[in-house]
Structure formats: structure tokens, C-alpha cells
Design a protein around this nucleic acid. Structure first.
Length: 486
DNA sequence: ATGTCC
């Protein structure tokens, strides 16, 4: 297999590359995976997670989650916490799609009630939620309005009739990272972003109608607490999208800036230029941190406006108000961010800059920052599988501290987009899926082929590995019946 | 992921 000889098995699901594995490693690199998943792991993951372990200020371990695969600089699935005093911030540790994330919404409808209207429902969602590369939203705004959006995130939505206070409460950080200053974003970023609010985008972004089947509930108590057991075969809505062209431009702008100052001004040498970074406390590092927060807030607002449209569609089709239909949020999680959080390091509580790139915060019970209703359960963690094979709702565990209370974010690709496109045909996939009870609408058949279930790891294996590693507990498996994708 | 190359 591709597994390096230096890889040591620490436990059933923890593997480690020691600091002796590569020159310059400051901490060991750890990979969360079962034996099956470690053997399937993209060889680039071992290389990249070891590279991350060389970054200034990194604490304890460089991590990669079981859904990991090769990415820009850091692996997708990467986790790295830096000492904010001596460490760096790296856009490659956050990703181009800043605050790409997942939102899960309840209904009180049963699959039996939705099934007769499923085609209509998916068609209307496809009509009302713009999808595809370069798609534009329906909210007309000027650059200054957009600057307010990126500074206030979901709070802008609350003020403008697209959100309820409960929606904000059920969003990580209340739907707004404080300290987002629009003076740190370029005009070009504003121009790319201002007409993209309320849009799904392309790639692996989608909105899915799913069913909670009784035999797929793994933890009844947590499923009750998360609202998944209101009716049998309850229908829920899961969607996945981020900060669109805006976040991409923010990442591009600052990667370029960091490459120009990193070595010349700060004397930082890195093993891969894709790990471009700046000292966290430098003017450049702080400017990027603030601009990144703008993109985080844009993505929260984007998902909030999409939720508003989803409520309109359901309300029209089922002739009842969103409240009557029980269209309430379970939670909204970010999986491409860097955040200042307090964690235990060698017995004392310390503030750290936690990079999560294709990995999800998974706070265990009682951790500060969770809404009151999830204090006892731990944080709901939304894991999007492939559109064919299903998704999961998990809960953060109290044993997740070693990985800074972080878990996986999805299935993880086993096949590159290019490879998948060569192996599958989108139109045939659409027909096959419909025969299996999943009605899918798409902007692009090529894009659909890239998202074929066979191009991804087995989601059951991924979530089982996170549970065995003590990071996140399975609550329920969610089965798709309809999907719109970009 | 992305006005899939300024």
C-alpha cells in the first residue's frame, strides 16, 4: 500500500508519523483511520500532514481526519492548532471555500407525506435556489450593503427578514464571527460576492431531502434531543455550501500577499509554497484573519438566505406556514475556518488558533460556546456523505480534546474529479439514482458524474472511525430521496 | 472550491 514505513499504530483508529519522519517536523503527525481507511488513504495525505507539522507554533499534533485526501498545502481533513503568540496563520489550512459548511433543518413531515410531491418539491427548490458556477442570487444590493453582510453574517439576515433569532442561536458562533472588518477585503472580492448571496454554487455543493428511518437511529436519546424523532420516517433537509467566489477571492488575495512577505519580511521558510503563511500577530496575519472572518460571515448569511428560500418553497407546496411545518434548524457547522479557542495544553487552558480544513468542530457536552439546548448532548455534527449513499448526524464527545474537539466533515474522495468524470456519466447516474428512489436535479451532468458515490469513501467507515477515536458519536444515518446540485 | 487562466 501507500502507507509510509515510519507510520506507527497508536490505537485501533490513531496512526502516527513521529517527528523523525521528516526534517523540520515540530510535532508528530496523526491520522484518524481504521486499518481499511489507512490503506485507502491518498499518499498525499502522509506527505501533507507531515508538512503541516513543520509550521511555526504548531501544538501537540498535526491531524488528519479519516475522510482526508490531498488538498492545497494542507490535506482536506486537516487540523492544526497554532500558538497565537509564536505561530502562523495559513490560508492553505482553511481552504479556498472559506466557511464551507453544512446546515440541517427539520420538518414534521413524514416520508409518506412528502413522497407524492417529491418531484415538485425538488423542481421548485431547483428553480428557487440558484446553482452552478457563477450563479447569481435574487437579492439586489450594492457594495456597501454587501460590506454590511460580511461584517454581520446571519445578523444581517435577521435584520432583513431572512432569519429568526432561533436560527442564529442554532448556528456556530451565532452566525457571525466577531472582528470581521470589511476594510481588509479587496474591491475585487466585493465585486465577485455582492450578487452571490443565497446561491448554492457548484462542485460538491448541494441541497438534499433526507429521511430518518427508524432502523437508522443509533442513539435514541440524542436523536430525540436533536428533534429527529417527531414523526416516524421524518423528513429533514441538509445542505452544503460556502462563501462562493467571495471567499475564493479573499483566499487568493492573501495567499499572494503572504508569499510576498513570508520569507523576505518574516524569515519564514516552508517546505511547500502552498503552505504560505504569516505570523498570526503580524499586520498581514491579522488582516487576513479579519478578511477570513468576512468570508465566514458571508457563508453563514448565504446558508441563511438559502434556508429562507427553502421555507418559502415548503410553505407554498404544503400550504402551511414554516412554523406549522416544523422547519427548524438542528444546527449549522463550518468546516473550513480558523478560530481562536481555549483548549487544555499540558494541563493548563490556553488560547489557540485552530485551523480546520475539511474538518468540523465537535464540542463535547458542557463546552462553552454550545447553545443551552445542546449543553448536555454535545454539539450536533453534520456529516454530508455522497448524494447516493447517505449522510450522518453525530454528536461531539467529551473525549475529543486531543484533536481540539474536531471530527470529519464528509465521506472524502477516493477518486479525483477528473477520474470520476471519466468513469461515470451524469445522465446515466441520474436515471440510476431515480430508479433507486433518489430524484436529482442538476445544472451540470459533468458535475454530477464527479459526485458519484463510487468516487467517495464509505461514509459508514468514516464515521465509525471517528467514534472509535472518541471524537464524535453516531446519532442517526440520513438517507436521501431528493437532491439538487450545482 | 472557483467568473475551472490575468
Amino acid at each position: 500500500m501507500n502507507v509510509p514505513a515510519a507510520l506507527k499504530r497508536i490505537s485501533e483508529t490513531i496512526w502516527e508519523l513521529p517527528v523523525s519522519h521528516k526534517e523540520g517536523m515540530l510535532v508528530p503527525a496523526r491520522i484518524v483511520a481504521s486499518e481499511k481507511l489507512i490503506n485507502q488513504m491518498d499518499a498525499g495525505v502522509f506527505e501533507q500532514v507531515s508538512n503541516v507539522a513543520t509550521l511555526p507554533g504548531i501544538q501537540r499534533y498535526a491531524y488528519c481526519m479519516p475522510d482526508g485526501h490531498w488538498g492545497y498545502g494542507f490535506p482536506i481533513g486537516g487540523v492544526a492548532a497554532m500558538d497565537p503568540g509564536s505561530g502562523v496563520i495559513s490560508p492553505g489550512g482553511i481552504g479556498f471555500d472559506i466557511n464551507c459548511g453544512m446546515r440541517l433543518v427539520l420538518t414534521n413531515l413524514t416520508a409518506e407525506q412528502v413522497q407524492p410531491k417529491l418531484h415538485q418539491l425538488i423542481d421548485r427548490l431547483f428553480e428557487r435556489i440558484p446553482t452552478g458556477v457563477g450563479c447569481h442570487g435574487f437579492i439586489k444590493m450594492k457594495g456597501d450593503d454587501f460590506r454590511s453582510v460580511v461584517q454581520h453574517g446571519s445578523r444581517w439576515c435577521l435584520k432583513n427578514g431572512f432569519a429568526s433569532q432561533e436560527d442564529l442561536d442554532m448556528t456556530e458562533e451565532g452566525g457571525c464571527f466577531p472582528g470581521a472588518d470589511a476594510s481588509h477585503i479587496s474591491q475585487k472580492a466585493v465585486e465577485r460576492g455582492y450578487n452571490q448571496l443565497g446561491t448554492l454554487g457548484s462542485g460538491n455543493h448541494y441541497c438534499e431531502i433526507q429521511v430518518v428511518q427508524p432502523h437508522n437511529i443509533m442513539d435514541r436519546e440524542l436523536a430525540d434531543a436533536f428533534g429527529l424523532t417527531t414523526v416516524p420516517n421524518q423528513v429533514v433537509i441538509m445542505f452544503h455550501c460556502g462563501s462562493r467566489g467571495f471567499g475564493h477571492q479573499v483566499a487568493t488575495d492573501y495567499l499572494k500577499l503572504f508569499l510576498s512577505v513570508m520569507e523576505r519580511k518574516y524569515g519564514i521558510k516552508i517546505v511547500d509554497r502552498e503552505l504560505a503563511c504569516a505570523p498570526f500577530h503580524s499586520p498581514e496575519g491579522q488582516a487576513y484573519f479579519s478578511a477570513m472572518k468576512c468570508a465566514v460571515n458571508m457563508a453563514f448569511a448565504n446558508r441563511q438566505v438559502i434556508l429562507h428560500r427553502i421555507r418559502e418553497v415548503f410553505s407554498d407546496l404544503f400550504h402551511a406556514s414554516p412554523d406549522e411545518l416544523g422547519l427548524r434548524m438542528v444546527y449549522d457547522v463550518a468546516h473550513n475556518t480558523a478560530k481562536l479557542e481555549r483548549h487544555l495544553v499540558n494541563g493548563s487552558r490556553k488560547e489557540l488558533l485552530v485551523h480546520r480544513k475539511g474538518s468540523t468542530r465537535a464540542f463535547g457536552p458542557g463546552l462553552p460556546g454550545l447553545p443551552e439546548c445542546y449543553q448536555k448532548t454535545g454539539q450536533p455534527v453534520i456529516i454530508g456523505g455522497s448524494m447516493e449513499t447517505g449522510s450522518y448526524l453525530l454528536a461531539g464527545m467529551s473525549t475529543g480534546g486531543d484533536a481540539w474537539f474536531t471530527t470529519a466533515h464528509g465521506s472524502g474522495r477516493t477518486m479525483s474529479r477528473h477520474e470520476a468524470k471519466k468513469s461515470f456519466r451524469g445522465d446515466k447516474l441520474q436515471r440510476d439514482m431515480e430508479q433507486r428512489g433518489i430524484y436529482v436535479r442538476t445544472d451540470s451532468f459533468g458535475g454530477l458524474a464527479e459526485e458519484a458515490g463510487a468516487a467517495y469513501k464509505n461514509i459508514d467507515d468514516v464515521v465509525e472511525a471517528t467514534e472509535l477515536a472518541g471524537l464524535s458519536k453516531r446519532v442517526a444515518r440520513l438517507v436521501p430521496i431528493g437532491n439538487i446540485k450545482g
